[in-house]
């Protein structure tokens, strides 16, 4: 890295007065860029790689030399988690909750956004403001009375107690993203559809839903991620003997029960990260779009 900067300085020095020095593309300052990129990547990936490698070591190895590499490589930690415990069950539980949450958010959110975008009626802006105000009610704030409500409904310890509130709290962002998206659909399309005898409801199902797919994918991805990573709500709702456990809860339980098994905790934590990372690799563009679109609205 030191050589990068010296090379950089040497090559830049003679051309200080030249215009090209400050050109943004294509001069020797690219070494600085690459250096910064490498540092950022190392800072980001380093801890995750250490975690993954730690899972391939024994607790003895970790204690003797915390910074070393696996020697020999031990598959036992990962193997045990994948074959013996409840890892797959927890993953499945998380998946069920996340998929149901996503489906609910996308369906109800798009439905609600449709009249708010394309109908004109008294109270329209009022309803929209109610939804946007929801951004100020994070789940964290409402967790305690929410728990009591779920308890009254008899949903504690079950999937519904997780899915329905998650849908509710994801609706504001969904409506905020979907409304301008649906409003932007060309009016000519609507007119043409009505000429062809479609009703407004028909127009929604036959035209809006297919055309709004990119927007729906964006809000769906955000909802899925939020549900998949959720911790506080499962922590509070999924109590009781027969309650299903989601992956974030499962990881902390494992850590609580095997506090001394560092290698095991590392393996478990890394395994729990993998689904989110895979999902991210598939959906990266959508996530960034959704996040930057959510507030700009």
């Amino acid at each position: 890295m030191a050589t990068d900067t010296t090379v950089e300085r040497k090559r830049r020095a003679p051309s200080t007065t030249s215009r090209t020095r400050t050109r943004l593309q294509g001069d020797s300052s690219i070494y600085i860029t690459i250096f910064v990129a490498l540092v950022a990547v190392g800072f980001t990936l380093g801890p995750i790689i250490y975690l993954a490698l730690g899972g391939f070591r024994t607790n003895g190895q970790l204690a003797a030399d915390p910074t070393g590499l696996p020697d020999p490589w031990v598959w036992q930690n990962y193997w045990n988690i994948l074959t013996q415990g409840n890892f797959w069950q927890y993953t499945l539980n998380s998946l069920i909750v996340a998929v149901a949450t996503t489906a609910g958010v996308v369906l109800f959110g798009t439905m609600a956004a449709y009249p708010l975008a394309r109908y004109s009626f008294r109270g329209r802006e009022g309803i929209f403001i109610i939804f946007t105000a929801g951004l100020m009610f994070p789940l964290t704030v409402a967790i305690f009375p929410l728990f009591l409500l779920i308890q009254d409904l008899g949903w504690v310890g079950g999937y519904w107690g997780l899915i329905v509130p998650q849908v509710a709290f994801a609706l504001p962002v969904t409506v905020i993203i979907m409304r301008p998206f649906l409003a932007a659909l060309p009016d000519e399309l609507e007119e043409a559809s009505f000429m062809d005898g479609l009703t407004r409801v028909g127009f929604f199902f036959r035209m809006v839903l297919p055309l709004a797919k990119p927007g729906m994918v964006t809000v769906g991805v955000l909802a899925f991620l939020g549900s998949w990573n959720g911790y506080l709500l499962p922590l509070v709702i999924l109590t009781g003997r027969d309650a299903p456990t989601t992956l974030p809860l499962g990881v902390t339980q494992f850590q609580g029960q095997n506090a001394a098994d560092f290698a095991g905790i590392m393996a478990y934590t890394f395994l729990a990260m993998i689904p989110a990372l895979v999902f991210f690799l598939m959906m990266e563009r959508r996530i960034v779009d959704g996040l930057s679109g959510a507030v700009k609205g």
Partner: peptide, 20 residues
Amino acid sequence: IIFAPYVLAEVTAGLMWLML
């Protein structure tokens, strides 16, 4: 890669740093 930690659950990221 730079964006990846954002999508991890805070729980898993937290436990990772607890180990480190």
